[in-house]
Design a binder for these strands. Structure first.
Lengths: 208, 208
DNA sequence: GCTGATGGAAACCGATCGGTTTCCCGCCGG
DNA sequence: CCGGCGGGAAACCGATCGGTTTCCATCAGC
């Protein structure tokens, strides 16, 4: 029979923490975490130094999962544009769930305001991974200002996921189409690598 | 002399609540709120039913201030495009402060996950005001799909403010230039009302 | 079968939570 | 001069917080 309680206490605890904290916020008590995980506080405190460390570890554990979910599978030799849009397609897919609460990394950083908090730093690294993915694809596509494009894509990703998470928008094409629009403007069109209207020049503050 | 403690207890309380909660999150204790406001819990509880109501009232009080700060002054007969960009310019201006923590409405909704919470509903109305402003300007500018443009602008606004708030980006032109890019694509160019490349057709789910 | 490590249940600790109440000072009109 | 009252200070309440400790059931190796 499949014993419901097979995985190690550490894994149960981190999984429960990730799920509970995602649903109820970082304010969730450790009693609730331990009960949900079927782990005693005693075990928890000999695995981790405290709640902060559990939180950070839970986020760390989520990072590879999120990357695997969002980023194109390794064996996919798609064009940069498609690889970027893939991320937004996965976002929209996830956002259709009524339980979707936005990007867990962004939420963690918003909730624990302190940027020095261990979990906040883990979350920041998680976000940086996506930013670097965007930048790498932009470079691979020969975009004039890859860093600028990556920052814009991150703004759209975080804005779309946050708004979907709080129920302010249902997306359904909004994130993908907006990202596509930014890619077009950067010259990363469907046809091929950078050669659009403004390969260079589009930075700074164009409006007075 | 200017007596430091002039305004009514209610005003002191709401101002202190807005500031403290913005800085430290909705988890801030009422003891801390009252002490910061120089108001006794006794007074607070005969002014409000509880912490939730204080939170909601503090956010309600912030809405007109935020609108006045972000939206163009009433006497400004600028073109729709300029009126929209004005919002993003104010955002970037505010984001230069090291104390900037992002949009207080979005933060409140992210922190108290419950959309039914009184304060969350106040915050949702606050965000809706901006969305409607964008939509009205888009319509005034003759944009083909004003609702779509408004949603995209909100995504950029929330994404940019959130990322600036958590210290992931410094903006400095990013929000304004990205918004301008969206306006261009919607046909709301510097020259005049809608007549760009794709006045209609650009909605739905363009990617598989 | 015995033993020792693992780990869950739960009592316990001081601090703090949201919320209520008591007390008393200072300011007001009469 | 005084009586009423708005309102701050602070004690108090039960619940819960993060964190520690005790106790005991289980199970693997011998």
């Amino acid at each position: 029979m499949t014993t419901t309680t097979k995985p190690t206490p550490r894994d149960r605890l981190l999984d429960a923490a990730a799920e509970l904290i995602y649903r109820e916020g970082v304010g969730t008590g450790i009693d609730a975490l331990c009960k949900a995980a079927g782990v005693s506080k005693r075990s928890m405190y000999q695995l981790f130094a405290g709640k902060d460390e559990v939180l950070a570890a839970a986020l760390t554990r989520q990072e590879p999962r999120l990357s695997a979910l969002l980023f194109p599978p390794p064996g996919t030799p798609a064009a940069p544009r498609d690889r970027v849009l893939h991320v937004f397609e996965r976002l929209e897919e996830a956002a259709t769930s009524p339980d979707y609460r936005g990007c867990p990394f962004l939420a963690a950083q918003v909730e624990l305001k302190d940027p020095g908090h261990a979990a906040s730093e883990v979350a920041a690294r998680g976000k940086q991974a996506m930013s670097e993915f965007f930048r790498a694809e932009a470079e691979r596509g020969g975009v004039g200002q890859p860093e600028l494009l990556a920052r814009r894509l991150m703004v759209v990703y975080d804005g779309a996921s946050a708004r979907a998470g709080i129920g302010a928008d249902t997306l359904d094409g909004l994130a993908v189409s907006t990202a596509a629009l930014l890619l077009d403007a950067a010259g990363l069109t469907e046809n091929g690598p950078a050669s659009g209207p403004d390969t260079a020049e589009e930075a700074g503050a164009p409006a007075a």
